[in-house]
Design a binder for these strands. Structure first.
Lengths: 250, 250
DNA sequence: AAAAGACATTGATTCAGATCAATTCAGCCC
DNA sequence: GGGCTGAATTGATCTGAATCAATGTCTTTT
């Protein structure tokens, strides 16, 4: 009976992915707790009521599943994979406003249009809700609303950090900040930081060009701050100095 | 008896400013509706319960009432006046992440430290809550939580726009975007845009220097896009061209 | 294994905006 | 009105990152 108070459920064709579907790590939709954890607000009755509210979809790498400016009809929860969020100018200039991974919510707009686009980096599993359904869910599960507020607050803090980076940091400081952010994001055992995105994505995230990103990474290598590994990874070899650089202390 | 369902209340020494205190326009704390409007979730009993939850404070121009990195003990609602929010680097470089005016909430942090500083531009009237009190309020009034989520969503959209501006727009595009934003913010009858902040604030908001801001405004004047008025105002004389410039179409 | 294409690095040059440096202007307070 | 002070403008020069241009290095395909 312990499963009755657990968020984890197996996959079925059309269902609400509460968490941990496909045996991958995930977050409870209503409380934000990791997949295997107990989630007291959800029981079998709740799950039966919710079963038909969401559609599971798959987005292949490179697929833009949210178009900037399009009518904001749906709301998404990322079940696995990672996504880049961006805004663009008419002449093609692009700013990546953030990366989102497993457990993140997308499409929370007050406006009736999406304010940003979203594109799959690798293969992404998504849980899609209609907007009225989402409203219903928030009414039925107040903890969901609290969870969304917490996530929005965190994103706001991240956005403010990014504004400081884009408005006032040098190229070296930007790249250092980015590497440390990636490290914290992907809490691997070692200090090997995975960089699954291209140089172009890094540049569009940091407000630089691909050449400057590349040059800066090379400079960091010659300065023995990092070691550039095989297959889009970087090892930080002088954490203290990199942190000082990212914080703008040099 | 119609006052029982109205948010508007007169001022008392220590009280929750629900809205419209001091006969100034304001917003209902729980529903976000303007001062004079009906707010069905608040009645006299609620008001009695809430009466002692907040402290009204005054911040004089230039006063920093939230210190970046300080323990996040309080939560604020701006009752009147305008505020600049900012982050700084150790060497003094500064990024203004936004301006907040009447009705806005500040200090909504998941972390236990403030992620940004806040300084009064003019004289600011504030309604201050302790964090536990705020949590209590959110439990008692679910609409407050919804209101905060809506505000956070809007701020997130604004933050994404600002990231695009800081990462990818030219100085001219930045200043044009800023003027239009100010115009929309202060929906005056005429096209006279008030700019109460200094050139230094504008520069720190747009990721530029004061010289570049000044030069760009002068250029816009010679190009007959704007007319610079007396006492920190600007009149937009070529809306279409300015909008095209802000959108990056030239 | 070779070819093709995308992605990444490195070099040379340019330029938008920063920095340094005077003025000029707008409030203020006697 | 006449200094006084901080803010704003304007000019001259410099520089960090962009742009232009090869070259090099992975991946995928066949």
């Amino acid at each position: 009976m312990s499963d009755q108070t657990t968020c984890r459920r197996d996959a079925r064709p059309r269902r609400l992915i509460l968490a941990g579907a496909h045996r991958q790590p995930g977050y409870c939709l209503t409380c934000g707790i990791r997949a295997q954890s107990i989630c007291s607000v959800i029981d079998d009755d709740d799950i039966a009521r919710l079963a038909e509210t969401a559609v599971e979809t798959l987005a292949l790498p490179g697929r833009t599943f949210i178009e900037e400016g399009a009518p904001a009809t749906d709301f998404y929860n990322i079940t696995s994979g990672s996504v880049k969020l961006f805004k663009a100018l008419p002449d093609g200039r692009r700013q990546i406003t953030g990366f989102a991974t497993t457990g993140h919510f997308l499409g929370l707009a007050v406006s009736d249009q999406y304010a940003f686009g979203a594109e799959a980096i690798d293969t992404v599993r998504l849980c899609r809700f209609s907007r009225p359904r989402m409203r219903q869910l928030m009414d039925d599960f107040p903890r969901l609303e609290r969870r969304l507020l917490a996530e929005a607050s965190n994103e706001l803090v991240a956005a403010q950090n990014q504004m400081l980076l884009l408005g006032r940091k040098t190229a070296r400081e930007r790249v250092a900040s980015f590497l440390l952010e990636r490290m914290r994001e992907a809490r691997d055992p070692a200090e090997d930081v995975p960089l699954p995105m291209t140089r172009s994505d890094m540049a569009d995230y940091l407000g630089l060009t691909i050449e400057t990103v590349s040059r800066t990474l090379s400079w960091m290598r010659t300065e023995r701050l990092i070691a550039i590994g095989k297959g889009h990874t970087v090892r930080i070899t002088a954490m203290e100095r990199l942190e000082a650089l990212a914080a703008g202390e040099s």
